[in-house]
Write a protein that binds this DNA or RNA. Structure first.
Lengths: 224, 224
DNA sequence: GACTGTGAATACCTTCACAGCA
DNA sequence: TGCTGTGAAGGTATTCACAGTC
């Protein structure tokens, strides 16, 4: 409720805020009422410097008290608001192979705020399947079905060659955010809407290549 | 074969190199023999500036010829070597729920260089299942089974609370690289081995939070 | 005294501008 | 002329150092 618009959040790393929220939520559950930037850094295994934490938190508003630390409750509330944890979100899954199926199961089990409201595929053997009461529809019928489902977020778990087309289709039908598992050449290209469509790419094969790169050339540097 | 050690690859983004490899591989298949940094940028949908490409490629060795461009074949070969695409890699999957199962299916189908050599879980209902000829073993038996499997890479698809313990177990048994799907507080902590253990974290819920953050606070800035 | 908040310094990565070469 | 290779400039994110406040 206390959400005095964080005027500018530029330069603040959202994954870090998400980590703060998780850690603070734990501390909250453990009965803590207040925490210092040092204490939070310790909770995070000192993977983030306390200075960094203070910079990030100060950008959210005046939650700290000098000499004391941060009151956890309002901070958790503010983080939840900033991260969009307070709303419920409807997801459209596009591509219901192993990956799409696993993602749908994973995310709905993990966070109640996410609900799958539509599932699409192009394969006749998959279309018509029912998952948790939701029928898998033909992607070709998306224009008819998707608007009624009122999805906010699209998840692309389709083969690489279908990704670009699927993204454009979703964009045209009003989806405003896309989580893409398909290896686009580098990033998925989406139409320059106003407001812009938000895309996050998760490239599993690419991540594996980072590992095999490091295993091959050897980790020369010190790095944590 | 032509692999004159790229002395220092610091500052070069591996995901970018991986994108170059994919794009060049396509160009190669299309019969192209040579390409300019401009041409490569175009293949990548101009998501990367040609200057950036030249900087990256020049770090790999003297592959360019001024006035002409880059010969594709040796470049692809060098990229493949740097990215570790030329070896085969054995993977141990830890946690064989939806996610672990989907990942195993996905990565082995997508790239032949990856082979699943061991699968572990802790749930009696999963242990004993067989996937593509591989038996799911009890994680408690890892010390007996894992060394014989000679895995290079461990994939953690376990619940959050089991991630840290599993990572340490893998590390102790000689795994040198870990792909972690569990939401650690921020990053998984692994023992400071020599050589260090390489960890990549994929936080699906975190990625979704980035989307919901942006959908909530609104995408103020211009950003690409 | 303890801890936050923040300008300054630093490090890092990307883009620019152009010298070097075929 | 055409394109690579690279020092310099610019921008952004992190760390430092310390002033400000309870």
């Amino acid at each position: 409720m206390i959400a005095p618009l964080p005027q500018t959040l530029v330069g603040v790393s959202i994954p870090r805020l998400y980590a703060y929220h998780r850690a603070l939520h734990q501390a909250q559950a453990a009965g803590e009422a207040t925490i210092t930037s040092q204490g939070l850094a310790a909770l995070l295994g000192h993977t983030i410097a306390s200075t960094q934490i203070r910079k990030d938190l100060s950008a959210l508003g005046p939650f700290g008290r000098r000499g004391h630390g941060y009151a956890i409750d309002p901070l958790v509330e503010q983080l939840a608001w900033v991260l969009g944890l307070e709303h419920d979100w409807k997801i459209a899954i596009v591509g219901f192979g192993y990956l799409g199926h696993a993602f749908a199961t994973f995310i709905t089990a993990r966070e109640a705020r996410f609900r799958v409201a539509a599932i699409f595929d192009r394969s006749p053997s998959v279309i018509g399947q029912v998952w948790q009461g939701i029928r898998v529809d033909d992607i070709a019928d998306a224009a008819r079905i998707l608007p009624a489902a009122e999805c906010n977020i699209g998840v692309l778990a389709v083969p690489a060659e279908a990704a670009q087309e699927s993204a454009e289709r979703l964009a045209a039908l009003g989806i405003r955010a896309i989580l893409n598992f398909a290896p686009a050449l580098l990033h998925l290209q989406v139409p320059k809407n106003v407001p812009p469509i938000i895309v996050r790419n998760i490239d599993l094969a690419g991540e594996m290549s980072i590992l095999t790169h490091r295993l091959t050339v050897g980790p020369f540097e010190d790095e944590e």
